[in-house]
Amino acid sequence: MADLPGALPAPPLDALRARLAERAAAAGLLDVAYRSLDTALGTLLVAATPAGLVSVTFDGAHPEQTLDRLAVELSPRLLEAPARLDDAARRLERLIAGRARAFDGPLDLSLARGFGREVVERLREIPYGETRSYAEVAAAVGSPRAVRAVGTACRRNPLPIAIPCHRVVRSDGSLGQYAGGTEAKRLLLGVEAARRG
């Protein structure tokens, strides 16, 4: 390139990429769309398949590892496509701000498998503004001795915020772990307590 006289203008990459995402979706070739989302809990990375929201993680500022994992576990046909996630992003924002009590959009649970899937399904039954202990969730899934495994399943919940793993706390009342950090868990529970009733 160095020995050509002159240069071509810079490509309009943002517009090109937006159009590619739309065409890929229309052609059924966009298996995973993602965007980052700035929230009170930090910068999230949110991803969706055509079936629904599939992944929420707290690493939106440095998403490389999660994107690599999604490419392996779901599909390498993965593009940044913010417009495809506008609806899911608005729903998450409403939940975080306490303006909604549940995520009522489509969810794709394909990243929750086996025991983790059973736990995640149970988490959706914990009412807004309430909490359960890890032991109670373990009992609810019929494995009362699997308290530690329930803790792991909560931490690995692929759809935190949308599926309320933050409502599971320790039996002694302390918060326990959270993928987004203890402060994020405290904030979500605080919002729910304030809106409850």
């Binding site: 490509p11 990459l13 999604l70 392996v72």
Partner: peptide
């Protein structure tokens, strides 16, 4: 075998591909 997210392919080669297209 695993594949990198396609987004990284677009990010790495999008400008080059556009130059080829624009030159023709």
């Amino acid at each position: 075998m695993t594949r990198a997210p396609f987004e990284t392919i677009v990010a790495a080669h999008g400008a080059r591909v556009w130059r080829v297209c624009r030159a023709l």
